[in-house]
Simulated assay, not measured.
Amino acid sequence: MIESILREIRIHRSFLITTHENPDGDAVGSSLALAGYLKRLGKDVTVHFCDPVPELYRFLPLADSVRQDLPDQDFDVCFVLDVGEFRRAGKLVNECRRIGMFINIDHHLTCDRFGTINYIDSAAAASGVLVYRLIKAAGHDIDYDTALALYTSIITDTGSFRYSNANPEAFAIAGELVATGINTWSIAEKLYESQPRQRLELLALALSTLSFSANGDCASITVTLDMYEKVGACAELTDGFVNYPRSIRGVEVAVFFREIQPHLFKVGFRSKGKIDVSSLAAAFGGGGHHNAAGCTLTGDLAEVRKQVFDHLETAL
């Protein structure tokens, strides 16, 4: 599989790189790492996200080159990273007719096989790990900028190496990346110690919605459109909110209800390991990993909460 991808890189010139809506650290880090690598090979590279790069990750090299539009040109290859479902790459990519082939690189347990080549490994800690494997298989070193992006990918998707996906490979790769000279404290400070005031104000509102299932093994929090307006915050500031209810002793599954439009909610699930939340999300048309998954549901908040908690009660 890796050799097939490297062959396409060798024989083609123009590349498009994209990832999922509302990109997280793995989506941004893996995409920018791959972009930097292809640029070093002299390739013509465009990085397109349907949503802007969150402010949190704008310190990464090439972050300012990411576009929300698509240039009027043909692309030999489109790399689609970390999306899980092709639709999450956004309308422009989904409907583009100027792409020769798609290469799907992902580590989601539930993943569409939409690519001409599908490089999927759910045992990988992050999609950045798969990009790392490609670069190393090609016989090339990891430069400083690529190391910075890959380290961000891995540290964010493993929860700073706290999650169960923090396997020996993730630690080994991180050690090699640190050896390139990247400053791990500087990265951690940018990711975790430089929060805008609005994020904490929004978190305070979200925690006030904390609720539990009857036996206490499921907990949830909610963010509504009114909350964003009240504190002047935006959706990207909610990254990591779901970990607060999951951190409660006795809670096995945490749920985060995030209103994205009136009567439309993103629902995020996080598990401590006993429950496969990817199957929970799949029951509602979503997907993800064993311990982290999500879906989108329509209805008012009370209806959506009842749907989810009724299903969770059966699962738990």
Score class of each variant (00 low, 15 high):
Pro245Ser: 08
Leu134Ala: 08
Ile155Asp: 00
His20Phe: 09
Leu207Tyr: 11
Ala174Glu: 13
Leu264Ser: 10
Thr224Phe: 09
Phe241Ile: 03
Ala293Gly: 05
Asn118Ile: 00
Lys39Val: 12
Leu316Pro: 06
Leu109Asn: 01
Leu56Lys: 14
Leu264Ile: 03
Leu16Thr: 09
Tyr228Trp: 04
Glu21Tyr: 14
Ala124Tyr: 07
Gly115Asn: 10
Leu297Phe: 06
Gly25Pro: 07
Arg113His: 12
Ala204Gly: 13
Gly250Trp: 03
Ala174His: 12
Ser31Asn: 04
Leu202Trp: 01
Tyr151Thr: 08
Asp226Lys: 15
Ala233Tyr: 07
Pro71Trp: 10
His140Trp: 06
Ala235Trp: 01
Ala302Thr: 05
Leu62Tyr: 15
Ile11Ala: 05
Ala233His: 02
Thr180Gly: 01
Ser127Val: 14
Leu134Val: 09
Thr146Leu: 04
Ile142Pro: 07
Glu252Asn: 13
Gln307Pro: 00
Asp82Lys: 05
Lys230Ile: 01
Gly268Met: 00
Cys295Asn: 10
Leu60Pro: 11
Lys91Pro: 00
Thr146Met: 15
Glu236His: 05
Glu169Val: 13
Asp141Val: 09
Leu92Tyr: 00
Leu177His: 06
Phe257Ile: 02
Glu303Trp: 04
Ala206Gln: 06
Gly240Arg: 03
Ala292Arg: 10
Glu21Phe: 14
Met1His: 05
Asn104Cys: 08
Asp157His: 05
Ala174Ile: 07
Asp51Glu: 10
Ala302Asp: 05
Leu32Ser: 05
Phe212Trp: 03
Asn167Val: 14
Ile155Ala: 08
Lys43Ala: 08
Glu229Ser: 14
Ser153His: 13
Thr152Lys: 07
Arg246Val: 10
Val178Arg: 02
Val80Asp: 07
Leu205His: 09
Leu62His: 15
Arg258Val: 00
Ser213Val: 13
Asp74Gln: 09
Asn215Gln: 13
Phe49Tyr: 11
Gln307Glu: 11
Ile99Lys: 04
Arg133Asp: 14
Thr184Asp: 01
Met101Trp: 01
Glu55Gln: 14
Ile117Lys: 01
Gly139Glu: 12
Ala204Gln: 14
Leu207Phe: 09
Thr19Tyr: 04
Ala281Lys: 11
Arg249Phe: 06
Asn165Pro: 12
Ile9Arg: 02
Phe241Pro: 02
Asp74Phe: 10
Val251Gln: 07
Ile17Ala: 09
Val66Phe: 09
Gly285Gln: 13
Thr222Phe: 03
Asp26Ala: 08
Leu203Tyr: 00
Leu81Asn: 03
Leu32Ala: 02
Met1Glu: 12
Asn291Lys: 13
Gln68Asp: 08
Arg113Asn: 04
Asn118Met: 00
Thr296Trp: 03
Phe75Val: 05
Phe114Lys: 02
Gly128Arg: 11
Asp72Arg: 12
